[in-house]
Amino acid sequence: MAEIIPQRELRNNVSAVLRAAEGGAHYTVTVDGRPVAELGPHRPRQWVHRDEVAALLATPTDVHLLDDVAEHDLDDGLGHDPWSDA
């Protein structure tokens, strides 16, 4: 599970936090208590064989997916962009 770290603490201790992340630690960075980013060790790209990709793409699509999504209210309740100055 990721440790929660406020943006201010990250700013004040960036070197130590990055060393810990390099060593395998995972962080959820917050701003005013809201999670805004995840920080953890770098993972190099892992290539997947084309046959595996082809098999995945050949999987039938759920014909009811859009109906299921439409049934749920995806509004976050804020009613506006939380990152805007307004």
Rank of each mutant, 00 (worst) to 15 (best):
G40F: 04
R19S: 02
E3A: 15
E9V: 10
G23D: 07
H80D: 11
E38W: 03
M1A: 12
A16R: 06
I4P: 00
T30N: 01
G79A: 03
D62E: 14
L74C: 05
D85F: 10
M1S: 12
P6I: 07
L65K: 06
L65M: 12
I5T: 06
D51T: 13
L66K: 02
R50Q: 15
D73A: 07
D75H: 06
I4F: 04
A21L: 03
L56S: 10
A37Y: 15
L56P: 04
L66H: 04
A54N: 05
R50E: 14
T61C: 09
H80P: 06
A55N: 03
R19V: 09
L66W: 01
H64K: 15
A70W: 09
P6H: 06
A86C: 06
H49I: 14
T30K: 04
Q7G: 06
P41H: 09
P35I: 02
E71H: 07
I5P: 00
L57E: 10
A16M: 03
A58I: 01
W47K: 13
L74I: 07
R34P: 01
A25I: 12
A37I: 13
G23P: 00
V31G: 02
E71S: 06
R43F: 02
D62A: 06
A2C: 00
H49Q: 14
R45M: 09
D32C: 09
A37N: 14
W47C: 10
W83L: 03
D68E: 15
R43C: 03
T61G: 09
E9L: 10
G77L: 13
E52K: 15
D32M: 15
G23A: 08
D32T: 14
L66Q: 04
L66E: 02
H80G: 08
L65D: 08
Q46W: 08
P44K: 08
A2N: 03
D85H: 13
A70M: 11
A2D: 04
L78G: 04
H64S: 13
E3S: 13
D76H: 04
